[in-house]
Design a protein around this nucleic acid. Sequence first.
DNA 1: TCGAGTTAGTATGTTGTGCGTACCATAATA
DNA 2: TATTATGGTACGCACAACATACTAACTCGA
Lengths: 151, 151
Amino acid sequence: MGDTAGTKTIPEEGLGALDEILGFHIRLAHNAVYRHFTETFADLGLTQKQVSVLWLIEDSDDIAQTDLGRRLQIDRATIMAIVNRLQSRGYVERSQSKTDGRRQTLHITPAGHDALQKAWTANRIHEEWLKSKFTPEEVDVLINFLRRIHD
Amino acid sequence: MGDTAGTKTIPEEGLGALDEILGFHIRLAHNAVYRHFTETFADLGLTQKQVSVLWLIEDSDDIAQTDLGRRLQIDRATIMAIVNRLQSRGYVERSQSKTDGRRQTLHITPAGHDALQKAWTANRIHEEWLKSKFTPEEVDVLINFLRRIHD
DNA sequence: TCGAGTTAGTATGTTGTGCGTACCATAATA
DNA sequence: TATTATGGTACGCACAACATACTAACTCGA
């Protein structure tokens, strides 16, 4: 161990200059949230993205992939992969759009609906864990700040 | 909603219930930051994680991988992969620790130092973009909030 | 001092995501 | 009609997170 002699000067805990970087804190926070999410959703085996997508599909039945991507700010190719996974699990289905031959409309299957029910419960726990770190007013402020970043 | 033609009721823009979820906003914000970071650092070809790690190694010369992981909250196997990439680029080197045979101490090469210099410039631009969305006081508040999440 | 348990590093493999590129079919338009 | 734009798809690459398993080195208690 770095004894008393001055040779080993490993800063014990600090993050140094990184601590000033806003982007860095966002990454760390996101990571922490991601980890807790994964834990909470371990039984379901769904990721954040998958739940978000599933959620939005249920919310807006017959939505197309492109719109999905637009709202969640996800690349066309990436949303494709996510929907594929959801589909191969039997949670969503694709069908042809009547009005536009290029489009595929997405909808939730009963199994997907069930998964979403469970996801809702898990998410309540997850959100409570997260929000418990703040007062309700602070939550509002924080969401407002974050919206400024991603809007 | 579907006032005009009735059949297609795709909510125009909203995120529905998702909009209430704090975790969801963190994800979106993180994503936006990630994208801008990638753009800004395109020339360098370094990721957020790589820069963070490089930075910390320079900051604390002879740090071990484990300590790195502890500070950045990154898994042992994951930090391994990151350091490998950095090493194969010639940005960092490993050497045996004198005091503990299990440990590898990490240090920056001149090439790594150069890369960090450029990263510093790129990061200034990136941070300015990010922080320009807030007043200095708000930045402090935000960092404080984020720290609560990841600490 | 010996042996059990812990810690650091490593290798390997899987999963999910993000993005680039290319291709095709179908609109939309000039 | 010819051209361009759009939506979906396939393929491939790079990264990251994590699990598992193994070795070597250290620590500590009986």
